[in-house]
């Protein structure tokens, strides 16, 4: 709290020179934002910090690295690994497919209604996640799902006989892509809209081919928004549990499901190991964001 009141003085000194006015305005200034900060600290920051600190404590409350070290056991490492793989695959597939769709509807010369219909649908589909999404994919690609049955009947191709399983890495990835693609579309379309028509014309008069223009201007300009969205998609998939849980029960051992089981019943028989798992999740999504911020400040000096 001390540093808040410190910056408080600095601010008030700048905006309200008269001394008496300052003493009057100080509390009211902060009163306006106090509920927000109290809420954020109590229900967002402190609970997270509590877990992060708990990850470095033992039952006796002493500082330790044992919990972190215990993450190295094979089942937990495997859970992290499959989570990272699913998140990475679904965010990359979602990102590139979403980008392709966004470019197609904005720049592809398609009728206007396709653009608005796609955007509306993307708004819906990006929020259609969780348990119902799992149901939809079970009805599609489950053993009795329509696509499975039709492929078997019409083409004679039994995807389950060829190693596919909805309760697997690819099954989960394919399901996550259902909300990843539209999320990408929703976020990246404004960025593509921001590309000015004159840039392409200027490049053309300067002798550039379409490919050169894309390589030298379009991709560098879209890149920061694109990368930022990929990071968002990654975090989105990494923390998701409902879809996976409803889809696979606990047969696919991803980190959030492991943590869920731990919270419900201390399956790891070590309360502090749960903290360490949560800590690891924050570290991974946090690292992704740090990487993004670092990359952006390093290579995108042209951004205001």
């Amino acid at each position: 709290m001390t540093d808040i009141s410190l910056s408080d003085h600095a601010v008030a000194g700048k905006t309200a020179p008269p001394a008496d006015a300052r003493s009057m305005r100080l509390p009211t200034q902060w009163l306006g934002v106090a509920p927000f900060f109290i809420f954020a600290i109590m229900f967002l920051i402190l609970p997270t910090l509590y877990l992060m600190l708990g990850a470095f404590r033992n039952d006796a409350g002493e500082f330790t690295f044992e919990n972190i070290a215990a993450l190295a056991q094979p089942s937990i490492v495997a859970a992290y690994w499959i989570s990272i793989k699913v998140s990475l695959a679904s965010s990359l597939i979602g990102a590139f497919a979403g980008l392709a769709i966004a470019i197609a509807i904005v720049r592809g010369g398609l009728p206007e209604w396709i653009r608005s219909a796609t955007l509306t649908f993307s708004g819906v589909a990006s929020n259609f996640a969780g348990v119902p999404l799992a149901f939809a994919f079970l009805a599609t690609l489950g053993r009795l799902g329509l696509a499975t049955v039709l492929l078997n009947v019409l083409v004679g191709f039994n995807i389950y006989a060829h190693g596919f399983n909805i309760l697997s890495f690819w099954g989960l990835t394919l399901t996550y892509v259902y909300f990843q693609i539209p999320l990408m579309v929703v976020i990246i379309v404004p960025a593509i809209d921001g590309l000015k028509k004159e840039w392409g014309e200027a490049a053309a008069t300067l002798g550039a081919t379409q490919a050169q223009f894309w390589r030298m201007v379009v991709i560098p300009v879209i890149w920061p928004s694109f990368l930022g969205t990929v990071i968002l998609l990654f975090a989105n998939a990494f923390g998701a549990i409902a879809t996976a849980y409803a889809l696979t029960g606990s047969s696919l051992n991803i980190v959030p499901i492991l943590l869920y089981a731990q919270i419900r019943g201390d399956v790891l028989h070590n309360a502090h190991l749960g903290y360490a798992i949560a800590f690891g999740m924050i570290v991974i999504t946090g690292l992704a964001n740090v990487f993004y911020i670092w990359f952006r400040t390093r290579s995108e000096r042209w951004l205001k």
Binding site: E198, E201, A202, T205, L206, G207, V221, E300
Partner: peptide
């Protein structure tokens, strides 16, 4: 095509490439 004509063009809205 425009990129084969060897003309220079200046636009009302400058149209400088922002990333360069």
């Amino acid at each position: 095509k425009p990129n084969q004509r060897n003309v220079g063009m200046v636009f009302q809205a400058y149209a400088l490439f922002p990333n360069l």
